[in-house]
């Protein structure tokens, strides 16, 4: 009996510590300045199609301080790898040493997939995301909406909760979203350190969001 009470108490304590850590990690993100210490390792979630085009537009203007760049694409996606390689090789002209890698993980949601099976495939994607993020230990995750963002950001958050590394979550909602956030955006809004929207109607609805006009 004493053992059982002890075990329940231990579990509750762990949950409490976890929640407090989660709160601290999310709240203190904006004070974290990895740029002062040197180059910033970026994990870029490229998703597919329009998402990839948009995220490469954002990458265009990031300086060489954002090195290395690890691109994550869905394993069913053939187009994005080509776009990324073209983009990176064009960037190479301006800075002599270009460092990037491309990693593949299972897609957490295909278009038109049902929501219940999405939960299962997202858990599956999380299984791949955890070791990837723990291995790469990026300073920030940059993403803009494909479902694949969610497990990767969760993994980044976990690194922070465990005190291993603060991973900044930078989310840019797609320009297609004018009135309503995407599902991914709604999930990541509370845990993002920087959450960008591109239309004033979204800025008004989501006070934590950052609005700089259209940025892609």
């Amino acid at each position: 009996m004493t053992f059982l009470v002890g075990a329940v108490f231990a579990v509750l304590l762990i949950c409490l510590v976890f929640i407090i850590r989660l709160y601290i990690v999310v709240k203190t993100g904006s004070h974290h300045k990895p740029g002062r210490k040197g180059p910033i390792a970026v994990l870029v979630v490229a998703g597919s199609g329009g998402h990839t085009t948009e995220i490469l537009r954002l990458m265009e203007c990031l300086s060489t301080a954002y090195t290395p760049r690890h691109y994550v694409i869905a394993d069913t996606d053939k187009m994005s790898e080509e776009k990324i390689c073209t983009f990176e090789s064009s960037k190479q002209h301006s800075d002599s040493e270009s460092q990037f890698t491309i990693c593949r993980i299972p897609r957490s949601r295909e278009v038109h997939q049902s929501w219940s099976s999405t939960v299962v495939s997202t858990l599956n994607a999380l299984l791949y995301s955890l070791p990837l993020v723990f291995r790469l230990r990026p300073d920030m995750v940059l993403c803009n909406g494909p479902g694949t963002c969610v497990p990767l950001c969760m993994a980044g958050l976990l690194l922070g909760i465990l005190g291993m590394k603060k991973v900044l979550i930078v989310y840019v909602e797609s320009i297609c979203r004018v009135q309503m956030l995407s599902l991914t955006g709604k999930i990541l809004y509370p845990i993002s350190d920087y959450f960008f929207v591109q239309w004033p109607s979204l800025r008004d609805k989501y006070p934590k969001s950052i609005f700089l006009g259209r940025i892609v």
């Binding site: 904006s30 300045k33 990895p34 740029g35 002062r36 910033i40 537009r57 954002l58 265009e60 203007c61 990031l62 300086s63 301080a65 300073d139 920030m140 900044l168 930078v170 840019v172 320009i175 920087y194 960008f196 591109q198 950052i210 700089l212 006009g213 259209r214 940025i215 892609v216």
Partner: peptide, 17 residues
């Protein structure tokens, strides 16, 4: 759109010199 605005904001926020 102006991705440069995004880059400038991020540089400042992340302390990039």
């Amino acid at each position: 759109g102006q991705p440069k605005n995004f880059a400038n904001f991020l540089d400042k926020a992340l302390g990039v010199q």
